[in-house]
């Protein structure tokens, strides 16, 4: 291992780049300097805090605290997935659907990876569990979010087509099938693209991190392949679960289209 530790003066030097963009924005009257500054400050504070939290959690190796951290991560990911939706279900359904799909896919895939492939001792060791859950959640969240957004949008737009099928006596699963297909396809587009260009166009971040930390590239690649499989599996599972659950809420047991379960206000994006 030939890991090079960074000093705070190194970070300050790097931040000059951002300061320069801010000055440029002011000079060109782009009004971006505030946004850049706030985002950069948030990033620094959030990361320093999480660094401290992780340090404490790693030292404790407690199943309780690790589980709590995982639950908070899932809850925040669920909130973010729901926040991006143009159309929402009434009540807590959008948040509930998003979060439960993330919980299902994220925890299933993470536990599977920890207990059968990576096998740290103990299996819930937060040094492995939390970063892996984080990578999986981040990607699954975007799949769930895009999939739900597409499904709800199409349900409204394709109302006439869906109801034409229902009126002909098709069941709700058949009536929603083209919409489900489009929604899942949209949700998986990102991860399919990421897998296709991995290593050719983009060197994935985790692999880069391991290489910078001194790990042999062929070993880092193995980890990256594992993570890609985990992310793809979880994204597919989570997106499918969210989209299928959502079609149930968009209909009822008499196979009616229930657009009245959607809020009437639309978020302008």
């Amino acid at each position: 291992m030939n890991f090079i530790a960074l000093g705070y003066e190194d970070l300050t030097l790097a931040s000059l780049l951002l300061l320069f963009s801010g000055l440029l924005s002011m000079r060109l009257k782009l009004n971006m300097e505030r946004q850049i500054g706030v985002a950069a400050l948030r990033m620094v504070i959030q990361l320093m805090l999480i660094g401290m939290v992780l340090k404490i959690l790693f030292a404790m190796v407690s199943p309780l605290w690790t589980g709590l951290a995982a639950a908070i991560m899932i809850a925040i990911a669920g909130r973010e997935a729901a926040a991006r939706q143009t159309r929402k279900f009434t009540g807590w359904w959008t948040y509930g659907l998003g979060t439960s799909s993330l919980m299902l896919a994220g925890s299933l895939v993470t536990v599977l990876a920890l207990t059968t492939q990576i096998r740290p001792e103990p299996w819930f060791d937060p040094r492995f569990a939390l970063p892996i859950l984080g990578m999986i959640l981040g990607n699954t969240m975007s799949g769930v979010s895009i999939g739900l957004d597409r499904l709800l949008g199409e349900a409204v737009r394709e109302k006439v087509a869906v109801e034409a099928r229902l009126a002909l006596g098709h069941d709700r699963a058949s009536a929603f099938r083209p919409l489900v297909r489009n929604a899942v396809r949209a949700g998986l587009m990102n991860i399919i693209n990421a897998m296709s260009v991995a290593g050719v166009v983009s060197i994935p971040g985790m692999m880069t991190g391991q290489i910078l930390a001194g790990v042999d590239p062929t070993e880092a690649v193995k980890y990256q392949i594992l993570i890609m499989f985990l992310i793809a599996g979880s994204t597919a599972l989570g997106t499918l679960a969210a989209v299928v659950f959502a079609t149930r809420r968009l209909s009822d047991n008499r196979h009616r289209l229930r657009l009245d379960h959607l809020r009437s206000d639309i978020k302008e994006s």
Binding site: E158, V160, V162, E163, A164, R165, L166, A167, G169
Partner: peptide, 15 residues
């Protein structure tokens, strides 16, 4: 039921 009692909407739907 809808195969026996079929509704044809004014605007036809195509999927």
């Amino acid at each position: 039921w809808r195969r026996r009692v079929t509704y044809l909407a004014a605007e036809s739907g195509w999927w």
